[in-house]
Design a protein around this nucleic acid. Structure first.
Lengths: 230, 230
DNA sequence: AGGACCAGCGTGGTCCGACCACGCCCGCGC
DNA sequence: GCGCGGGCGTGGTCGGACCACGCTGGTCCT
């Protein structure tokens, strides 16, 4: 067993037994290294992994806010893995697009009208109506709107994946949008579809929402493809 | 900028520029540390992260097979993140099940008859016919069969996610199956469905395959749920 | 001359001890 | 009583050292 696995096993065991929960503070690196029978350097390698994986967070200094704490922000970690996969040419934006479509339609089909933050979603759409909004900002809000809608499915894994995928293709999406000639007309169409989707979701018409979503995403993908974007 | 990010930036840049490709060997830790202006300990923290993320692989010793090499096996990494999420009670097996269903039906709908390894899939099914096969082994082959089918979609990201999800719920699936009373009858039904799915896939009936798949997965999930499994 | 063997060397893996920057906390001094 | 500054513990980084491993080339025996 690698030393690294010792730390990972200890950590997951502490979590499973409930001795450690999200928000709790870990022992100091020096203390933990001694307890696990490792050197501080080796322990730190494992802790750094857990940090990148979004399982812990560290701050320097002293006092109640200093030290290492258990967190649960795994989204960026998944995003990092996906990014690496794209860097090694293993995954294409097309792949990401397809997976996103599958996940989001599934989320819409399972969405519960009570669980969604529809006021927040509507507020986002209002902000996106502003014609002076830069393209990048519109796309950011657009992605946020979609993630918010997918959260109504009550599936944490689905939300995390959606968020990770959004981050991965953010740059690519921006490039595509930049190639469009009549951006304002496209925005108007997108906003119409957004509102139809939102209405379907808050009224519990899941299948309807999924259909709207599929048209919405495929449509935008087609428009940007025609515009000669990469 | 954190030292850790220096290494990550260097690595992704090398990949993006093509100076580093999958299969290539990295400089030795001592040399790389000096080149990046870091201590070997700090560098190793970053390398360990890349290793867990499935981007590199290290072997001790000397010669052409020793050293650190660029790889692209990110599946286990994603699986690790998901496992951590389940450990922190952020994600439930139900969540994983739903996402898997969405991904797999999408994969079936996009599957291309030419791209699949149908002989390999059929061989798997034949092995799964063996009545003396332990439950755990059957489930392992079953998961392998599903991953193999999903690969026909030609979407690396989808395949990787499928594989990661399979690893995450492997234990949970085994528990569910153990609660069944008439395992042999269930196997017979599953195998019938597998063959119908395989036929639909190799004949290019994507929508048909997706429908088969949905019934197949939902059906098994329902049976094990009735059996009182967790 | 050919083959078996072994020491050397470079690799990653681990450990130690040290120093730094930071930020709360307590006690000193006003 | 109040303000302030040093103490101390935190993570962050560094340099050096030793280990186990496994190829590699040379030596030595046949």
């Amino acid at each position: 067993m690698k030393s690294h696995d010792v730390v990972m096993a200890w950590f997951t065991d502490e979590l499973a037994s409930g001795r450690l929960q999200v928000g709790d503070q870990l022992p100091s690196e020096r203390a933990l290294a001694e307890r696990l029978g490792l050197s501080r350097n080796t322990l730190r390698e494992a802790l750094r992994v857990l940090e990148v994986l979004g399982a812990i967070e560290s701050s320097t200094g002293s006092g109640p806010r200093a030290g290492t704490f258990v967190t649960a922000s795994h989204g960026p970690a998944i995003s990092t893995v996906f990014r690496l996969q794209m860097a090694t040419r293993q995954v294409t934006p097309e792949d990401v697009f397809r997976v996103r479509l599958a996940l989001e339609t599934q989320a819409a089909a399972q969405a519960s009208p009570e669980r969604g933050d529809w006021e927040g979603a509507a507020a986002l759409l209002t902000r996106m109506d502003d014609p002076s909004l830069p393209v990048a900002e519109f796309l950011r809000l657009d992605a946020e709107f979609h993630v918010l809608c997918s959260r109504a499915a009550g599936n944490t894994l689905l939300s995390v994946l959606m968020d990770a995928l959004r981050l991965v293709i953010a740059d690519h999406t921006l490039e595509r949008a930049a190639a469009l000639t009549d951006w304002k007309a496209v925005v108007a169409g997108l906003q119409r579809e957004h509102r139809a989707l939102l209405d379907a979701l808050r009224e519990g018409r899941g299948a309807d929402a999924a259909a709207h979503l599929e048209r919405h995403i495929r449509g935008y993908y087609g428009i940007t493809a025609e515009a000669g974007a990469v």
